[in-house]
């Protein structure tokens, strides 16, 4: 009996989404990302050069919320799929197929993977959790991804993020949950001058415009002629 012939309630959790996407390959072309209407503004507003800073949206990443005690059997099974679970604040684990896991709390994690993982990753994680105590929820539509990069990226963030972003306390490869422009978001430093932000979809417009506003000063001449 194939997956699609089984009654819905007999399917393993997560397989309904898989079946759905198999039947709806055309849906992907119709999706609109939460900040798509700002893409032109992002391109125009980004700044090149030694004070440069670039803002772009990385749409439709796969995101899966994981709640589990990491030292339980279910936690170990989930870690096998993701290539580990982070054990402390700031830590990010990286695993196969571009899967990274951010630490949100002692039993609260966010797995992030490229968009094409959405057909498989949530189902694999649900299967790994099995009957264990915890939660695996496909949150891909919950948040979008902003990438802020360039020599002035940290300066833009520091205008409205209270966390200490100095490299001595916020190293490449770490992620924290904080607020940027009062928008709660995980903040992941993926490179010396590159930061990933994950605003919830409904706040993407606000944060996108907020960051654009923060870019503006770096586009202007440092020594204007009227001085």
């Amino acid at each position: 009996m194939s997956l699609l012939e089984k009654p819905y309630f007999l399917m393993p959790k997560g397989s309904a989404e898989m079946a759905n996407s198999v039947n709806n390959t055309g849906v992907a072309a119709l999706r609109r990302s939460p900040a798509e209407h700002l893409w032109t503004d992002f391109t125009v507003g980004s700044v090149a050069g030694e004070r440069g800073v670039t803002l772009r949206e990385v749409p439709f990443q796969t995101m899966v919320g994981i709640r589990v005690d990491p030292v339980s059997e279910a936690g170990v099974r989930l870690a096998d799929v993701t290539g580990g679970l982070p054990v402390r604040c700031g830590e990010v684990t990286t695993g196969p197929a571009g899967v990274s896991v951010l630490w949100l709390g002692p039993d609260d994690f966010l797995a992030i993977a490229p968009g094409d993982a959405q057909d498989r990753l949530p189902g694999l994680l649900v299967a790994a959790l099995g009957d264990g105590a915890g939660q695996v929820v496909d949150l891909s539509s919950n948040r979008t991804t902003f990438e802020l990069s360039g020599p002035s990226a940290r300066a833009v963030l520091e205008k409205s993020c209270a966390a200490d972003l100095h490299p001595r306390s916020f190293a490449v490869g770490t992620a924290i949950t904080t607020e940027v422009g009062k928008v709660p978001t995980p903040l992941w430093k993926t490179g010396e001058e590159t930061f990933m932000l994950f605003p919830r979809a409904s706040l993407a417009d606000h944060l996108g415009r907020w960051l654009l506003d923060g870019l503006k000063e770096f586009a202007s001449d440092r020594n204007p002629s009227w001085l």
């Binding site: 604040c89 949100l104 709390g105 002692p106 609260d108 924290i176 949950t177 904080t178 607020e179 709660p184």
Partner: peptide
């Protein structure tokens, strides 16, 4: 409670 952090 650390609401916007670890929620603990």
């Amino acid at each position: 409670v650390h609401s916007t952090g670890c929620r603990q």
